[in-house]
Design a protein around this nucleic acid. Structure first.
Length: 276
DNA sequence: CGGCAAACCTGCGAGC
DNA sequence: TGCTCGCAGGTTTGCC
């Protein structure tokens, strides 16, 4: 489900719900998601006030007053929902329930359990194995053509795969990489190191424009994606290539069909005419 | 170091 | 109706 624009939208929703609240109780309905919960997970969070909610790449960072940081990754199918009243029965895949001082109940739901939660702190986050390896944020005033060229230098793999590598740029996912490459007019098969300055500049612009537009649309709701407040995203209405196999390219004047290929076991959609 | 397939897990739609 | 298969928004691991 969630790529950067969805995670950003979820963060903004969680910020409204969580900021200033104190966690009065946390219930784990199983001992693990993708990984086991850290020892004393509930104990270390209970009774603490939430100061703010932010994002690094596709990770949600929930900062507590004592500088503990609750790190959440949504994997492929994770979601948060808030309930105030008329609280529905707990679902099979509601794995974590947070109760707050203002009688809110926030549930983490994740059927595939590719998501996870862990704890770190303000002091340790930069050294943390997860964050140490991450590349720069894609929505970033420094991410211009020259910087992109630097990141792609010596990278032999196809640009599609390199852009999905979180240690190169942190936060791009499968949908948005297809959309970005289409906007930039670059073939997903192009070797990353062969990208020239002009195209790197276009790529930088496309990254920024596509992600900003997607955040503005509240992300993409393909199946069941919702914000914590239950709102849908609408960026799927703005797709140019993703899921449009066999339909006409919206940039080409002549009729050219969007193609679907597989790269590193993930689907890629592109126009063979205007992406070179 | 890079690249690739497979693994993690469940749900859903298509096809038989 | 019910089975099997393939596929899905992410990331890590192990092998070449």
């Amino acid at each position: 489900m969630p790529e950067l624009p969805e995670v950003e939208t979820v963060c903004r929703g969680l910020a409204k719900i969580f900021e200033g609240e104190t966690l009065t109780n946390i219930v784990l309905r199983r001992a693990d998601l993708r990984f086991p919960f850290p020892k004393d997970f509930c104990k270390l969070l209970t009774g603490k006030q939430i100061i703010n909610v932010s994002r690094r790449a596709k990770y949600i960072l929930i900062m507590l007053r004592d500088e503990t940081i609750l790190v959440c990754h949504l994997g492929m199918s994770g979601s948060f929902s808030v309930f105030y009243e008329n609280i529905p029965p707990v679902h099979k895949h509601d794995h974590v329930i947070f109760f707050t001082s203002n009688r809110k109940e926030i549930r983490y739901h994740d059927p595939r359990r590719f998501g996870f939660m862990t704890l770190t702190s303000q002091n340790e986050i930069e050294k943390h194995p997860i964050f140490r390896k991450l590349g720069p944020e894609p929505i970033n005033p420094n991410l211009k053509g020259a910087f992109i060229l630097e990141l792609l230098k010596n990278r032999v793999g196809p640009i599609k795969n390199i852009l999905l590598n979180q240690s190169v740029i942190a936060g791009l996912g499968n949908i948005y990489v297809s959309e970005i490459l289409h906007k930039a007019g670059i073939s997903p098969n192009r070797k990353a190191k062969d990208i020239k300055k002009l195209q790197a500049t276009r790529l930088a612009e496309a990254i920024s424009e596509v992600l900003s537009a997607a955040i503005k649309a509240g992300g993409t709701s393909l199946k069941d994606y919702r914000t914590p407040l239950g709102e849908l995203g609408f960026f799927q209405n703005e797709f140019r290539v993703y899921g449009r196999t066999g339909q006409n390219c919206m940039k080409c004047i002549k009729n050219v069909e969007i193609k679907k290929i597989f790269q590193a076991n993930r689907s890629t959609f592109y126009c063979p005419q205007c992406q070179r």
